[in-house]
């Protein structure tokens, strides 16, 4: 075995994350259930990300429309802007951009929080206080990210489309109902549902990787920073990998 170090590290981490995820599934359906903590995490992870997601989504929708417009006008298909933006936003840009922002905000905060809990022995303290820290800290957070990201994406997608609506109205006058019907007519369930479904996986990846990084923070406070940083990097990469898998699977199932 002469794996060079980066590869060995990469595989080691992959195995670690896989085992961590297995542990999550082994524990998630077994009592005791940390319902109150789950709700608290959902609030912290979902609600408190909304302003950031909302702002970036709005700008994204607006900019996308303004950037697309010149070429669409040149091809004489200006009226197709809502349809095109809707497909781009719902199928790809919404899920991926929002998941990346989510990874930046939530992945790092989970990594840093659990990391500092780890190095200051708070996780041990929990364990001796009759609490399974994996259940209390990891299961709740991973469930919260998995459940909240789709909600954020639904809201973010809508805000992006609203931003695009504003973008269209900068140049021409299009009523809101017309815009919505133009945008939505181009979409089908086969495009909408897989796009929403994949965000569950994105959310899961952000949660599980953030928790893994936090839980495996090496001793010392600078380890906390590293945990937060690599939680974001690794989960962002995984979002893209999962996105690639998602498009291939939907393609395979003939939903493309």
């Amino acid at each position: 075995m002469t794996l060079n170090k980066p590869w060995a590290d990469f595989l080691d981490e992959l195995g670690g994350i896989a085992r961590f995820a297995t542990r999550f599934f082994a524990q998630v359906f077994r009592p005791r259930y940390e319902g109150a903590e789950l709700l608290r995490q959902c609030f912290l992870i979902g609600n408190l990300s909304l302003p950031l997601v909302g702002l970036t989504s709005f700008i994204m929708g607006l900019v996308l429309t303004m950037q697309l417009r010149p070429s669409m006008v040149e091809y004489g298909v200006e009226s197709q802007i809502p349809a095109m933006v809707a497909i781009a936003v719902v199928r790809e840009i919404g899920p991926v951009i929002i998941a990346l922002i989510f990874a930046g905000k939530i992945g790092s905060s989970i990594g840093a929080e659990l990391g500092s809990m780890k190095v200051t022995e708070q996780i041990d303290a929990m364990e001796v206080s009759g609490t399974n820290p994996f259940k209390y800290l990891v299961v709740t957070r991973v469930l919260a990210t998995t459940l909240m990201l789709p909600v954020l994406v639904l809201i973010g997608d809508s805000i992006m489309l609203f931003g695009s609506f504003i973008g269209v109205n900068i140049y021409t006058v299009t009523s809101f109902p017309l815009y919505i019907s133009q945008a939505m007519d181009s979409l089908t369930f086969q495009e909408f549902l897989p796009a929403i479904l994949k965000t569950f996986f994105f959310g899961f990846a952000v949660g599980i990787i953030g928790c893994y990084k936090g839980f495996h923070t090496s001793r010392g406070t600078e380890g906390v920073g590293r945990a937060a940083n690599s939680a974001v990097v690794v989960s962002s990469v995984w979002i893209f990998i999962l996105d690639l898998l998602a498009v291939q699977i939907t393609d395979l199932l003939g939903y493309n």
Binding site: N47, I155, M184, L187
Partner: peptide
């Protein structure tokens, strides 16, 4: 109070999901 806000947040998501499904599905 936080739980109420969370409820509003999730409800908004659900409503948008339903609205999306409706708007996409109205032709079908």
């Amino acid at each position: 109070w936080n739980n109420i806000k969370l409820g509003v947040f999730v409800l908004a998501g659900l409503l948008l999901l339903i609205a999306g499904l409706y708007l996409i599905g109205k032709d079908t």
